[in-house]
Design a protein around this nucleic acid. Structure first.
Lengths: 336, 336
DNA sequence: CCTTTTTAGGAAATCGATTTCCTACCGTAG
DNA sequence: CTACGGTAGGAAATCGATTTCCTAAAAAGG
């Protein structure tokens, strides 16, 4: 491997001069810089970023932490993937690299996530997925700079889609179509979920439809089995709901298959709403009505927030809310 | 940040002793080791891996290079995601970290991929996607250890699903159902694609069905637009094919939508076959018949090959072929 | 022509580990 | 009592950069 010393020797200068030429210090005349740069190119010199990172104290590494207790894995999560895609484009323009924090031991995630992150010297971490797990909390509460997708607290910046407005609109669309018995299967209880529930309730309130507690059921984001299980209960009810809102498209799609398998038709017997706007929601029949999250904007906001956070001396906590966009398709219909 | 020197001072020993205790050198008595480890825990010492990497000359980093000229992005590619998932589980057990090589400048990938990889000191690289691009070839031909998914050459180990056997079976299934006019839209021409074509042709040959050149069309993997475009041509033919085989599920699903939009029914008018066994293939109606790639095994083989490669002094090239599994669903039917 | 100010570039410390000797010191054997 | 071998631990070099002084030499000014 050719080092800065090799280049220095070849040019008849010292390593410090080469370093200064690389980093464009004004003390080095253009002529010398050109000579050194020529030599670097000829020798195919590539700087060792680990060494640079060590001496500069900056790693230019960003950690990605996707923490999911459920089966959907970091690399196959359709929503997170889209967000990360936008995120990575933004931060790599600033010279950052993405390090996936996937610390499995024997197929299971090991506890020492914080240690793992600290030893990699990442300058910041994006957190997606569960955030009330103690392993993740340890990181959020540490001095490491982070941002969270769908985080709604004060320990770090959080970026999310406006779940209140979205669920209000979703519910209104159903109410508008005559539905009065609407079930809402939520994700796991947290502040994001609470916002959605509030939107759901407010829409009912505005339409003067009494809120039926039993129509609010706690599921789990991206947990298809759970969604199906709850749906099964709903279908067996005497007063079966005429519409079901799911926590995300992924569970909604699974549930649609289940509902159909029970001999019911969507949307004739049951209207279905999802959330996220996944691509696959367009492939199912009937096409799933959903709330499209602006994943590009979300990813970009995450990068903006993290870069800001990393260049600041202390940690902040503020929530950025982006609007979702209703996409009405054939999975909902007016009640007969 | 607490360093090895801090721990040394606290224990009244030298840094070398602490290092030896960490790395379990026999020269240090158990008693001292225990004392040092206790101090490390109390002081919340985490080793700096960059420094370690610098002195050891091993980074324990593996680069992931997803090179796609088309729109599907590294993080949202459903097939690669599944493979990477299995891969990451395996290699992280060996203490490796994954570094995504996403070198975008102004939203476009910059040429200097090799430089980018070399400066990160990755010990090895997994390559997915296009491999005949010059940027990627530069890496494959460099001394850096790599493995490729769906690579079928001699410059590095390649892992892939047996496309010959798969396409032979796929074609046979269609022939068995009476189809005689079968179109095969392939991916971009390369050795993997060639294998599939060979399987396709051999099946026809065995059934004594003459091979019609015009039924072999070059599309592009994961390029929905192109697939639709080619499908459009096929549908306008006088002797419209009764079955179409697509290069992957992703394009097949898009084409199914298109075919339906033209007033044709699947599988009554046209039978459709995909490839990959993506989850979403199960969500479309009718469910898509496909060849399921064993992504878990593929990811694990990739990790095995890369680890072997990294611990060897020279580069090798050999191809490991894994069997695919037919999944017959409602998208194909017997001809009337 | 001498002093002062620039300019160009180098020496050496530093970042946080690892690793190769090397040195005390201990116990044991002769 | 001396010699020797083994054990415990340390000093210092190293990895490949960066960065802070610092020193010549050249240029400018008097």
């Amino acid at each position: 491997m050719v080092t800065i010393y090799d280049v220095a020797k070849r040019c008849g200068v010292s390593a410090s001069t080469v370093s200064k030429a690389i980093n464009d210090y004004p003390a080095i005349p253009e002529e010398t810089k050109a000579r050194i740069k020529k030599a670097m190119a000829e020798m195919k010199y590539v700087p060792n970023l680990q060494a640079k990172s060590l001496s500069r104290g900056k790693s230019k590494n960003i950690g990605i932490l996707v923490y999911l207790e459920h089966e959907v894995s970091p690399f196959t999560h359709p929503l997170f993937g889209q967000i990360l895609d936008a995120f990575s484009k933004k931060v790599s323009q600033q010279g950052y690299n993405l390090l996936f924090v996937t610390h499995y031991v024997e197929g299971k995630r090991e506890p020492g996530l914080l240690k793992c992150i600290m030893s990699r010297n990442v300058e910041g971490v994006v957190i997606l997925g569960e955030m009330d797990n103690e392993n993740v909390l340890e990181i959020i509460n540490s001095p490491i700079k982070c941002v969270g997708f769908d985080y709604y607290g004060t320990k770090m910046p959080g970026i999310c889609t406006d779940g209140y407005a979205a669920l209000k609109q979703v519910t209104e669309e159903l109410l508008k179509r005559g539905h009065r018995n609407i079930a809402f299967i939520t994700g796991k209880a947290n502040k994001i979920t609470d916002q959605r529930i509030k939107g759901f309730q407010d829409a009912l309130f505005e339409y003067k439809v009494p809120f039926d507690r039993s129509n609010l059921l706690e599921g789990e984001y991206f947990n298809q089995d759970k969604a199906i299980e709850i749906t099964a209960c709903l279908l067996e009810r005497k007063n079966r709901p005429t519409a079901i809102i799911y926590p995300d498209d992924y569970t909604a799609i699974a549930a649609m298959g289940f509902i159909r398998s029970k001999g019911l038709s969507i949307p004739r017997d049951i209207s279905v709403f999802g959330f996220d706007g996944l691509e696959m929601a367009n492939y199912v029949t009937p096409m799933l009505s959903t709330v499209v999250q602006d994943t590009k904007a979300l990813g970009e906001e995450l990068s903006k927030a993290l870069i800001e956070e990393m260049s600041s001396s202390e940690k902040h906590g503020h929530v950025v809310t982006l609007p979702g966009k209703l996409r009405i398709s054939d999975s909902i219909a007016a009640i007969k």
